[in-house]
Amino acid sequence: MTETPVNEMSFEQAMAELEQVLGQLERGDVALDESITLYERGAALKARCEAKLKEAEEKVAAITLDSDGNPTGTAPVDIQ
């Protein structure tokens, strides 16, 4: 696990760490307390990935096309 706060991670960072967490949990070679900590971190990482995907989805949906189907820009989207 990294020390980076989950809410500051990019999608790629969160996904990579989530894969590591899942690998550790699947092996089952960690103590119960550490398993709980890993599970909580994994849940936060999963939520971060979902939020970043939704953000990207909204940006794609905001792209406007001209009559020939070419992108002309994006509509303003306020994503936090």
Score class of each variant (00 low, 15 high):
residue 72 T to I: 15
residue 20 Q to T: 03
residue 9 M to R: 00
residue 57 E to L: 05
residue 80 Q to F: 09
residue 37 T to N: 06
residue 55 E to G: 13
residue 21 V to W: 07
residue 77 V to W: 07
residue 46 K to R: 12
residue 38 L to E: 04
residue 50 E to T: 14
residue 50 E to I: 10
residue 48 R to D: 05
residue 68 D to H: 09
residue 60 V to R: 13
residue 45 L to V: 07
residue 6 V to P: 01
residue 47 A to T: 04
residue 68 D to S: 13
residue 68 D to I: 05
residue 39 Y to G: 04
residue 23 G to E: 00
residue 64 T to I: 10
residue 24 Q to V: 01
residue 27 R to F: 00
residue 62 A to K: 11
residue 54 K to L: 14
residue 7 N to E: 11
residue 14 A to R: 00
residue 17 E to N: 01
residue 77 V to R: 11
residue 58 E to N: 09
residue 11 F to H: 15
residue 75 A to Q: 10
residue 42 G to L: 02
residue 18 L to D: 03
residue 71 P to W: 13
residue 71 P to Y: 13
residue 80 Q to E: 14
residue 46 K to V: 08
residue 46 K to G: 03
residue 35 S to V: 01
residue 28 G to F: 00
residue 42 G to E: 02
residue 47 A to V: 02
residue 67 S to C: 05
residue 57 E to M: 09
residue 68 D to L: 12
residue 22 L to E: 07
residue 16 A to H: 07
residue 42 G to T: 02
residue 56 A to R: 14
residue 20 Q to S: 03
residue 15 M to D: 05
residue 67 S to L: 08
residue 1 M to Q: 08
residue 45 L to M: 06
residue 26 E to V: 14
residue 6 V to D: 01
residue 74 T to N: 04
residue 32 L to I: 14
residue 77 V to K: 11
residue 69 G to T: 14
residue 59 K to A: 13
residue 1 M to C: 03
residue 37 T to A: 15
residue 31 A to S: 14
residue 57 E to G: 05
residue 3 E to T: 10
residue 53 L to K: 11
residue 8 E to Q: 13
residue 52 K to H: 12
residue 60 V to K: 12
residue 41 R to K: 05
residue 9 M to K: 02
residue 4 T to A: 14
residue 5 P to W: 08
residue 22 L to Y: 01
residue 79 I to W: 15
residue 9 M to S: 01
residue 49 C to E: 07
residue 64 T to C: 04
residue 3 E to L: 10
residue 74 T to W: 04
residue 70 N to P: 02
residue 50 E to K: 13
residue 9 M to P: 01
residue 40 E to P: 00
residue 45 L to A: 03
residue 73 G to L: 07
residue 63 I to L: 15
residue 17 E to R: 00
residue 13 Q to D: 08
residue 15 M to H: 03
residue 13 Q to N: 05
residue 50 E to D: 15
residue 75 A to I: 05
residue 27 R to K: 03
residue 54 K to I: 11
residue 79 I to H: 15
residue 6 V to R: 00
residue 58 E to Y: 06
residue 25 L to H: 08
residue 16 A to E: 12
residue 19 E to A: 06
residue 40 E to K: 08
residue 17 E to I: 00
residue 67 S to T: 10
residue 11 F to L: 15
residue 39 Y to D: 08
residue 44 A to K: 07
residue 33 D to L: 10
residue 52 K to M: 15
residue 77 V to S: 11
residue 74 T to E: 09
residue 62 A to D: 12
residue 49 C to T: 09
residue 35 S to Y: 00
